[in-house]
Design a protein around this nucleic acid. Structure first.
Lengths: 342, 342
DNA sequence: ATTAGCACTCACATTGACAGAGTGCTAATA
DNA sequence: TATTAGCACTCTGTCAATGTGAGTGCTAAT
């Protein structure tokens, strides 16, 4: 469809525009790149490219600007030769992570930070906690005469707890007996499975106290909810202001408003649960408010399970090559980190 | 020091400027407020006020703008008649909280949101988790042949856990014995007290396994660290852009940069651990980067313990009256909410 | 003590001229 | 037939000149 020369010129325009944020003119191209072509020829080609929908003109007698369609082509053709990070950048990432990972949360926080730092754009990281951990056993730890702590241990070694009411005067022995029985009956179930009905069934097989049942239900519900919680980490909102397209305060306000709504951010990130890297350009985005932005998004998994999603959000004029390279590297890096049990 | 008329005029200027963000001129004052004074007289008074340091002139032949000193006076004189929220606003706050409080975190999140909504400024909320809870008992829950879960229960009913290594083949009975002994020896201690030395001492009284001791140390350290963690909640960064003083992108960038550095925000909020409400105006702020802003800050407590700090940060031209009213109300409201155990 | 009047200052908006960068078209050229 | 030189034209951004409006300070009159 596009001959080599057109393709070459288009690429030059895109990369030039990405770099300078200024409409690119024929003369500039001829001067900067040694194509052996006069500005006039280039003009003709550009005219064609505009007709084909790859270029746009902000106004007569301005240079030209790549269209969403052009970026699409650019990004797609990049898939074959993805571009690599410099040794320097990789070292930076490695050392950054080495220094500050203490908890799971730190991993996500660092990811957000690095993404925004290296790409000069906003980063969004969604930590998925939709756990598929299976129930292993539960235990009651006495607290006072009428209260105890419910501990739930899952097969991935995590545990959680909640406060429950117990019949006054229940002995430690009784509690152990109860928990042992229940553990046997519930072992291997998904945590989310242990809802009202199943719990009721199991419980009534071993005890009759209604108060305790009710508080057990409540506590387990809370734990299950917490375990399927999704957490959002943002980074680099301020980088936005370095981008010329966000010199307009209205636009910044718009985007900041979106980023502040945690629910919206979650929706955006959850939408892209595809495999691998996904680039959405301009109006390809389905969410109002970011239709004039581009987003590069990747989902990372552990043993097939989705652990989280990371994304870079910025103007359509984005350094796709660099962004994709960073994401690819981070992606691989994180999967190895997550492999080691923390 | 200031006679009544000067005081009155100064107040008018301050409130007018807070409302319009435009330098206030003598003629405007005469027109808007029925003082029975001609512009010329007002001009003379304004001239005096400028000499006294209460007013500033952006340039000759512009109106005048209140100085930090003027705001100081304004805020101080407000202490006597603090200003109250409208019934409407109070209802708004009440219903907001009623709807979304499920966990402790929700309280802080909501606080941040409301503060920024109602004041049109950035809000910062610091949740203090510097717990003074005392150790109650610990328990080991077997996980595998070489690992167990350490549960630590404190006297406030909270509990925490961590993974530890155990000597291969340790029986449940042995674990119970060990935990019982240690619990007895440690009961009543502050969590942070149980550092290396004390733990070592207690542990060596009951067992000799070095591997287990090491991993115990690590796990308890982690738990103690987590319990003294402080969490920051922000709200309304986008409101900033509605303020005329933040039409300048550079200034926004500056402030956003600060807000993104969690550590800096913590420092700022921790600095004001005074009692009650604290207003810092302009250069009264000790932190570079917000020296051209004002901050209203309140610390809330529960049984004398500091639970958190909330603050509103904005331009020196801030609706102090409203902000203070909101903070006062929230402050009281939160203390009653926090009273009820969650 | 207050005020009317006046000269003066400064920011800001408007206008017009002009340079710079770019385009499209046509005719000449390889 | 593809390329290019040349030219007229268009649009933006900048700069200087100018006028307007809001405000001040001072002086003299009330």
């Amino acid at each position: 469809m596009l001959n080599d020369r057109k393709r070459k010129i288009l690429q030059i325009i895109i990369e030039d525009y990405i770099e300078t944020a200024e409409p690119v003119g024929s003369r500039t191209i001829a001067r900067k790149h040694n194509l052996g072509l006069s500005p006039a020829t280039i003009r003709n080609e550009m005219s064609d490219l505009e007709l084909l929908g790859y270029l746009e003109q902000p106004h007569t007698s301005a240079g030209r600007v790549p269209s969403a369609q052009a970026y699409r082509l650019y990004v797609d053709s990049m898939k074959e030769e993805p571009g690599v990070l410099t040794e320097n950048d990789r070292a930076l990432i490695n050392s950054w992570f080495k220094e500050r990972i203490r908890s799971m949360d730190d991993i996500f926080k660092s990811t957000a930070k690095i993404l925004s730092r290296m790409t000069q754009n906003v980063s969004l990281v969604l930590a998925n906690k939709k756990s598929t951990a299976r129930f292993k056993y539960l235990k009651f730890l006495p607290l006072s005469d009428t209260q105890a702590i419910l501990c739930i241990v899952t097969d991935d070694g995590a545990m959680d707890n909640g406060l429950i009411d117990i019949p006054a005067g229940m002995s430690a022995g009784e509690m152990d007996y109860l928990s042992g029985k229940m553990s046997n009956l519930l072992e291997g179930r998904q945590l989310t499975e242990i809802t009202g009905d199943l719990l009721q069934e199991v419980y009534s097989a071993v005890s009759e106290d209604e108060v305790m049942l009710a508080s057990l239900k409540k506590a387990i519900g809370k734990i299950a909810a917490k375990n399927s919680e999704q957490k959002v980490f943002l980074g680099g909102a301020k980088q936005l202001l370095n981008q010329p397209e966000f010199q307009d305060v209205g636009r910044v306000k718009n985007l900041l408003g979106i980023l502040e709504e945690e629910k919206v951010v979650k929706d955006i990130l959850n939408a892209g649960d595809d495999s691998g890297l996904k680039v959405t350009i301009g109006s390809e985005n389905k969410f109002t408010g970011i239709k004039d932005c581009s987003m590069v998004q990747a989902t990372y998994r552990l043993n097939g399970q989705i652990v989280g999603t990371m994304a870079v959000l910025g103007p359509t004029r984005m350094e796709y090559r660099k962004v994709i390279a960073v994401m690819n590297y981070l992606h691989k890096y994180l999967e190895t980190i997550l492999q080691e049990p923390k």
